[in-house]
Amino acid sequence: MAIILTAVLVLLLLALVFGAVLGYAAVRFRVEGDPIVEQINALLPQTQCGQCGHPGCKPYAEAIANGEPINKCPPGGEATIQALANLLDVEPLPLDGEHGEEKPPTVAYIREAECIGCTKCIQACPVDAILGAARQMHTVIVDECTGCDLCVEPCPVDCIDMLPLPVTTQNWRWNAPQPLAGSFGSQRGVA
């Protein structure tokens, strides 16, 4: 009898000790938010374009965490799908054409002579990349523009164009050699 009582008491004591440790750890190492959502969000291109059907990248990240397909992000394209597949350990899917096609990056350009200063595009821009005021000409801060297209629709005079990013000496890149194409350009040394 005494042995059983001792065993019960010891187990009770252990349970209390571990319970206290777990309770302390839950408070001490509390994790704010859902880390998987943050990780998914970090892989999304943050254009906030809404082509996936969610109002921004974070909501889509939350939806992916809740089991939505990973192939609804046209600005991210194949690279993002691949990265998401790696992160979530799922099969990469081809981009869902319903939400748009992968396009080269563009930036919005306002034809300033035609702008009537209605501020509608300013309100539409998710990253505050358009500068202007009521009845004043507006302009796009190119470095901040994510190319999300959201300003094009609200413009009443259609003075916004989406232009491909110009190639300059600053963002120009060496091309990889074309395998088995015969001529390899320039990078070989002296003969």
């Binding site: 969000n41 970090a42 999304l44 291109p45 921004g56 990248c57 690279a79 990253v127």
Partner: peptide, 19 residues
């Protein structure tokens, strides 16, 4: 370019959240 894209995305995310 990938690195730059990532830092740009991070920058855009911050701007979006601030907005």
């Amino acid at each position: 370019a990938i690195e730059q894209q990532h830092s740009r995305a991070e920058h855009s995310r911050q701007r979006f959240e601030h907005r």
